[in-house]
Design a protein around this nucleic acid. Sequence first.
DNA 1: GAGGAGCGTTGATGTGGATCAAGCCAGAGG
DNA 2: CCTCTGGCTTGATCCACATCAACGCTCCTC
Lengths: 242, 242
Amino acid sequence: MTETDLIGIDLAAMPMLRGLPDVVLAALAALAEPLEVSAGTVLCREGDAPEALHLLLSGQVSLLARAADGSTAVVEVVRPGGRFILAAVLTGRAYLMTAQAAAPARLLRLPAAELHTLAGARPALGMALARAVAGDFRAMVLQVRDLKLRSLPQRLAYYLLQLAPAETMPPVAVRLPFDKALLAARLGCRPANLSRAFAALRALGVETHGARVVLHDPARLQDFAAPDLATDADAVGAPGDQ
Amino acid sequence: MTETDLIGIDLAAMPMLRGLPDVVLAALAALAEPLEVSAGTVLCREGDAPEALHLLLSGQVSLLARAADGSTAVVEVVRPGGRFILAAVLTGRAYLMTAQAAAPARLLRLPAAELHTLAGARPALGMALARAVAGDFRAMVLQVRDLKLRSLPQRLAYYLLQLAPAETMPPVAVRLPFDKALLAARLGCRPANLSRAFAALRALGVETHGARVVLHDPARLQDFAAPDLATDADAVGAPGDQ
DNA sequence: GAGGAGCGTTGATGTGGATCAAGCCAGAGG
DNA sequence: CCTCTGGCTTGATCCACATCAACGCTCCTC
C-alpha cells in the first residue's frame, strides 16, 4: 500500500467527507499532507493568512483567542474527526483563532488553493464543505446561547450530557476527554470555579473520580441544565460535528 | 418589468450572491418568494424543520434562543443584506433559533429543497453558500471570544467601533440601528447595565443623544476594547457578513 | 521512603453585572 | 395644558464568578 492509499483511508473516515465519490476522495488524498505534532505545538496563529484546512485524526487541538492583556479564551476543543480553519479557508480571511495541540496529535493538511480549485470543479465537495461549516456554525450558536443564558453549573451539566452516549440506562459513565484546566477554559471559567460547579452537581447525582464521571440521574441533570435540550441532539460533542 | 425581474434586482444586491453568473441569479429569482411582515412577526421557531433560506432586504430580524424559564437571549440581529437559517438549510437539521422581526421587514424566501438542487448543479452557488456560512461562523466566533474575555463596557465599545465607518476623522457620528433594549439583549446584558456601560464610556469620549452616538476618540476606545482589533476588519457589523 | 512538582480542591474576599425599584423625560391623547 | 405611557437612567442591594492563597493529593524522581 502506498502512503496515498493510507491517507485515503483516513480521509474516508472523516465525518465531513462521508458519502463523497471515490474520485474526489482520491483527489483529496493526493493533496493531503500528513502531520504529526507533540502537545503544545502551535499549528496556526490568529491574524495569519489561511494556508490549509486541517483535519484531526487523533489527539486534541484547542482553538483559542488571545486578549491584549495576555489572557486567552478557549473557543473550542477539536476532537478526532473534527477540522479547523475551514471557515478561514473558505472566506480567504485571516485566522481568528490560534490552534494549539492540547495533546500529541496526528493531522492531515489540505492546502487552501488546491482545495478551492477542487471544490469549484466538484459540486459534491463544495456542498460537503458547506455542510461542515454549517455544523461548526451551529456549534458556535449553541455556545453563544449557553454563555448568554446558562449559569456555570448548568453549562457543565449540559456539557456532561453531551459526552454521555444517548439512550444508556441510568448510571451513565463518562470520561472527560481532557484535563480540568482545559475544560474550565472551554466552559469559560477558572479551574477553581469548575471545581465548585462539580461540587454543586454532586447533589444532582454526579459523582467524580478524576476524569471518570458517573451520572446517576441524567434526567434530573437535563432538567437542571434547563434550555430545551430538544433541539440539541445536534450535540457539539459528537465527533465531526463540532 | 415582471415581478421576477424585480426580485432579480434584489438578489443581485445581496452581498452573499455577489459575482454569481446571471443564469444562477435568474434561477434563484424564479424560486424566490417575496414576503413583507410587520414588527413582531415570528418567521420561524426553534425546533422546527428548515423550510427556506431567508434573505433580508430591509428592516431587522432578531435571532433568539429561549430558555426553559422563559428568558430569551438574542444571538444576533440580522440587518439588511443579511440572511438567516442558512446553516439549518444546509445541514437539514432543526432551527436552533427563533427568528422574529424587530421592525417591519421585507424578505425573500428561497425554499430549501430547490436551493439544494440548484446548488448541487451549480458549483458557484454551492461555494457562495459555503462562503456565506463561513462568514456567519466567524461572526459567532467573534461573539464567543467577546463573551469569554471582554467586560460589558468593552463589548459595547467594540460594538460601537464596528458601527463606525472605517477611516473617518475623529469625531465619528454613529446611529444605533435599533433601540437600547434590543442592543442590551444582543450584548448579553440588561438594559439597566447597558446604560451604565454607556456612562462608563463617557470618560472615553463617547457622547450619547438617544440613538445618536458620537465617538470623540475612536483610537482610545479601540485601545480600551483591548483584544487585538487587527483581525477584526472582518466586522460583524458589515452588512451581509453577520 | 523522602522530597518535590503539578493538578485539583477548598476557603476568604473582591467585583461585575443582575435584580428590584424609584425617578426622569419625551411623546401621545385627552 | 395636564396626564398618561413607555423608554431610559440612576440608586441600592444581591449573587455568581473571579481572584488570591493555602492545602491535599498523586505521581515522579532520586
